[in-house]
Structure formats: C-alpha cells, structure tokens
Nucleic acid binder design. Structure first.
Lengths: 373, 373
DNA sequence: CATACCGTAGACACCGGTTTCTACACCTGC
DNA sequence: GCAGGTGTAGAAACCGGTGTCTACGGTATG
C-alpha cells in the first residue's frame, strides 16, 4: 500500500503528467516501487532479479524482502521490449482434439517447459489462410519458435508466403519448425521434423500382403481438394509395397477420403454397396479405421474373421477397440519434443526423420475362404 | 529486400544514437522506420494502425505502402507496455492428452479466437505446486484471463495462495476462472464454471438401480491422497441415488482409484480376485471404464450379459467401444467456451453450473441370473 | 477583418525493465 | 601519502508503441 510515485522531488515538475491519479486502487507495483521501499535504485533491483551482477548480500536481502512485501510481479513485456527473449514457443495445429495432435502437443509442452519456455497454442481447422494469419500473429509476439504441425498445403502462393515467414522469423532470431510435413526448400531456413509416413505404410501393406491378402482396400487417399503430403506419402507406401511383392493393386480399391471417423464409415458403406471384393482394409488413420469397423460390423462383416483391418497412427484407443487394432505407430510425443529441442538448440541437425513401425494386434489375420461378396 | 532505414534525412541529427550500427543485418523494423519512409511522424503511423483517429486518406495510403514495403510487424510487447490489453488468455490443465481436457481446450481456443484473443496453454500434471507457479507466470504475462481446468486441491495453504492470486489478478484487471471446480469462497473474485458432477452420478446410479441392479461397484472413489472435488461429487451422487431408492450400498464396492485406464483395470482385477459380488460397475470416468472392461473381458465376464458397465465423461470413443458405453455426458466444449466468455464479459453472471445427462448405449442391461460369483 | 473552429499532424513524455557508463568508498602496494 | 584496483551502486538512455498536448493551414462566423 505504498504510494507508487516518489514525491521527494519538488512540487515544480511533479504531478504534471500523472495518469495514475485516476483509479485510486489500480496499484501495479513496478521495479521502482520496490527500489524505493528497499532504499536502492531500480538498477539494483533489476540486478537482484537477474542475478548476473554482484549485489551485496545485505542489499539483496532488503530488496527481496521489499519484493515480497509489495507482491511484486515482473512485467515480461517490459523485459521483452528491452531485448530479452520472450521465452515463448508457439504451436500451431489443426485441431486440439485430434488424438495424435494432442500427443504432439504434450511433447511440445514438455520440452518447452524443460527449456524454460511458455507455450502458445493456436488452431487453424485446416485452413491455410488462417495458418498464415496465425504465424503472422506469432511474429508479432516475437515467439522464440513457431511450430507447425500436420500436413501442410502444397499450394504455391501458400508455400511462397510461408517461405517468407521462415526468412522473416530467421532474421528476427526466431525459427519456423515444420513438424510432420516436408521442407519448403533447401534455401528456406526452417527446422524440419518428419516421421516416415511412407515407410509405415509400406511396412503395414507388406504385413497384409505377407499374410496372404491380395485385395486390400485403402481408405483415405487424396481427394482432389486435399493433396496433403501425409496422404500422398501413405498412398505411396501402399503402392510401393505392392510393387515389391509383385502384386498389382486395384485402383478401384484406393478410396479418397478425409481423415475422420465419419469419412471411413461412409467410404466403407459405399464400398460394400458397390459390391467391391476385398479381404482387408488399410485405413489411412485410426480414426478412419474406427469408422470402417463400424460400417463393416453394421453390414454383418466380422473383423478379423471375414475382413482384416489395419490403421495408422496408433492412437491410445487403438488397443481398446474390439478387436484390438493392428496399426502403425507414430512417435507423436517424440515429434513434439524433438521439434522444440532442435528449434532452440540450433547446433543440432535441423532436419530429422523419426521412424515408424507397425504394432501387431488382433485385427489382421490371413484371409479365410469367406471373402466378402 | 528493401533497405529498412530511410537515409533521406540529413546527417545532422541522425546516427547520433544508433545502437543499430553493429549487426549489419539485424533489421527489426520499427514504427519510426515506417514513419521515415512514409515521410510522416511515428504518431501518424500508430494512428493508421489503430484506426481510431482521423488520418487523411492520402497519408494513410503512403503509410500502408511503407509498412508493406518494409514488412513491418507490430511489437505486441511495446503495445502491452503502453497500457493496452495483451489480448491473451491462459489455460491451465493437468494434461493435454486427457480426452475431455482436449475438448475443453477446444472450447477455450474457439471462444478466445472469437473474442480476438490468443491462447496460452500450460500443463501441471496434477501438481498443485506447479499450478501455482504457472498462475504466477501468467501474472507476469498480464494475461486477460487465467483459466484453471479440472478438480483442484482442497489443501488449505493451496486455497489460500490461489485466493491471493485471484485478488491480485482482479486488481490487475485480469480474472481467475475456475472451470469444473468449486468456488474458493464468496469474497474471492473469480469466475466459476462448473458442471453438475453429482447430478450426473445421481442420474446414472438411478438408471442402474431402476434397471434392477442392487449391487453396483463404484470404481474411482477418493484415495486418501487425492481428495479432488470431482471425485467427491461423483461419489456423493452415487450415494444419494441409493438413498432415494432406499437401497443400501455395500461400502466394500466403493473402490478408491485414480482416473486412468490402468487404475480401472487394476481395481477390477482386485475386485474379481476378492470374489466380490456385483451386477454392475459404475466407473468414475470413461477411461476407468475402459480399464474395467478390459479386466472383465480378461476374466471371461461378458458385458453387458454378465455385468453392466457405465462410465462418466462421454469421451468421443465411448460410442466405439464394444459394447458402446453408456455414460454421463459432460459438456466439455461448452465448459471451455463459457469460461472464456464470462471472464471477458464481466457483466454476465460469474457463476454458472452446466447440466450433465446420461447417454444410454449398449453396456447396461437389467441383471440376469448369472451374477458374478 | 478578426476570431473561432475543424481537420490533420508532430513533439514529447510515458509504460517498466535492462544496460552502459560513471562514481564513490575502501583496500592494497610502493 | 598517493596511484591503482576492486566491489558496489546510481543516473540516464533505450527498447517500440501510445496518449496528450500543441500547432498550423484553411474555412466558417460575427
């Protein structure tokens, strides 16, 4: 409850400009208030806080006591303004409720905390325009790093503007991180943390083929309006595995679909209605797999007795489905941790690809006689 | 690639105080650089940005062009320092990967965006000390609102320090929001958004009782070291329903457990090993229910033929379990949205309780003859 | 013709820490 | 007894916007 303004100075130049006078109790305590109470200068208080300059023990004690008594809280904006890092990383994703995104978020948060950073989260709902706007906002915030998660757009003007941001952030001492999406180009200063999308799809398709499946439906290929790199890579792995096994695949079994539960469900119903022949379904994500499972079950098709089912992502619930879902594990948490670590420790390699591997559970079996249709 | 500094000005008063000279390419563009390029004062540029003061159209155009050419980015810290709101809300939760938390987060993010705010996320991993530290950090950030999600601690010194923060934030024009946890006291300036934990538990227990169940195991009661209010309320609903029905409940069937999948699993195995008699299990959360389900299945007990199972929270996967889980719906997204809305629009009521309701699916049936054991 | 007013724009202090440069007391050494 | 060093502390400029006060050209008014 100390007056925040020192009145020792003569009445001549005082009060003249004091916007403080209005609200009687708007008491924000500044470093100078602490200084006044401790009987030292603001400089000394600052030094006590930072601890990087010798301050006599007795002085330090007085200052600390004054801080406590006044309930002093540092103003990060003032600190940031005078050149210090903001100690903040920004994290941009499609949707917090995406089960894998949440785990990336956890990894980011974990590592950010470990490195003494706070964490901003922004969602884009898959809108590239909003993503660009959000990145711009992060430039205003002077974030230490801006982490973009999830498959990016391949649109040219989008890539160009994103490259611009990468350069701008770089010049400002910050960093653009692409997490789970491919680089923007060799000359663009970014940190890239990918995982082996194609390899996982290749491994899973190989697993299905080696179990004897010859007609595998892939649900979740690219739609004309969504050319996300994640999809492209997963489809490529699917194709490459067929080539390796010398097994041709039926293009009619490669079904474009978004990555939601409802999309898997709808696609499968359509597939069944069309009378397509298949012994296994490879869903491009576990969410899609859940939809596929529901549609199959509804049609009286048993999994895995009649049709095998594989997913992608290894979301936490994959193991709790009935049957437990065979899927591709993606190191989501590690993805987030790595993104932050690399962005803040620039001496490390700035492009890594994390491995994926298949997790065999109960939803895949060799095909029986009773092939669908 | 435009030179960020305008050199037209005479050499008379320039360069005098220019710490910029050192690093050749550390080009941060300020409002004054824009002003120089547009041939106006910094004040005018500021007015063009804010748009709350008349600026001649021709001047505005010149300024906007200069901003574009220099790739000017506003500095939010400078703005925040000179009194403006930070346009940020902070969001503090246990764990981003908790399925219900993610939905609260989504609601918070949604509403924050709608109100032109950015969103900080911090996790505490259930540690009250860390929660206090995080709230302190948010005070430093001058966030417009600090939203605490999830059952809080009942510890006295914790409550006292949290009350202190509430008062401090209030004085600073900010707001502490308790989301899904009870008020700290009448004199503490907080916004409280709860949901009817007890009512949901009451409704679900009533549902089970009305189906004829008389021996219902409650998995997920309070442990001595975790007296979270969420648990307490759910147990109370369970008890109150029994009273209403005039059915005594067996205290041995009220099992303390944490809220994880593994906890439900372990508790159920213990229950079975002990030879407890029950026809239904009410899991205190859906995650617990998943563990319970796994343990029952492992023991050869069918759900719902042999034992009925009910959950709490209505997480997105509840409908995809086999059998689809009967559970209590919690309006998580609305919880998040409401929290932000009330905190930023202070004229509304600052304490609301959202409703919960049961969602009947396939995991509950009237008890058959073959009761366990 | 002088005064008043309107629209527009600049000067300058200020927000709250940080940093550089300077200052002073005290001690050491010759 | 004085030059030089060391430990500690303060004054003032600065970071980059914003608010307030003043100023100036031009038109409307008495």
């Amino acid at each position: 409850m100390l007056s925040p303004v020192d009145h020792r100075e003569g009445p001549d130049l005082s009060r003249r400009v004091s916007p403080r006078e209005a609200g009687a109790d708007d008491e924000r305590v500044t470093i100078r208030d602490v200084a006044a109470r401790a009987g030292v200068s603001a400089t000394t208080v600052s030094r006590v806080i930072k601890g990087d300059y010798p301050v006599a023990q007795s002085t330090r004690t007085r200052v600390l006591r004054a801080m406590r008594e006044l309930d002093y809280v540092l103003n990060v904006h003032a600190r940031a303004l005078s050149g210090a890092s903001t100690k903040m990383v920004a994290f941009v994703l499609d949707d917090v409720t995406g089960p894998s995104f949440a785990y990336v978020a956890k990894g980011v948060e974990q590592q950010a905390t470990a490195e003494g950073r706070l964490c901003m989260v922004c969602t884009t709902h898959g809108d590239p325009a909003r993503e660009l706007a959000v990145v711009e906002a992060m430039r205003e915030q002077r974030a230490d790093a801006v982490i973009l998660v999830g498959g990016g757009s391949l649109d040219d003007t989008y890539r160009e503007r994103m490259s611009h941001f990468a350069h701008a952030l770089d010049k400002a001492g910050s960093r653009l991180v692409l997490c789970g999406r491919p680089p923007l180009g060799d000359d663009v200063p970014t940190t890239v943390v990918e995982y082996d999308n194609e390899g996982g799809a290749y491994a899973m398709t190989s697993h299905l083929l080696s179990q004897g499946h010859r007609r595998i439906a892939l649900v979740g290929a690219s739609t004309p309006d969504d050319l996300s790199t994640t999809k492209l890579d997963r489809v490529r792995g699917f194709e490459r595995a067929h080539e390796s096994f010398g097994v041709p695949y039926d293009p009619d079994l490669v079904i474009p679909a978004y990555f939601g539960r409802a999309d898997g469900y709808a696609a499968t119903r359509r597939l069944i209605a069309l009378g397509a022949e298949f012994t296994a379904v490879f869903a491009a994500t576990d969410m899609v797999a859940i939809g596929v499972l529901a549609a199959l079950r509804e049609a009286g098709i048993r999994v895995p007795e009649d049709v095998s089912l594989a997913g992608y992502d290894d979301i936490p619930f994959a193991a709790d489905l009935t049957p437990a879902l065979t899927t591709v594990h993606v190191p989501t948490e590690e993805l987030g941790r790595t993104a932050v670590r690399l962005a803040l420790n620039r001496e490390e390699r700035q492009h890594v690809v994390l491995g994926t591997h298949i997790v065999v559970r109960d939803s895949v079996r060799p095909p029986g006689r009773n092939m669908v249709r």
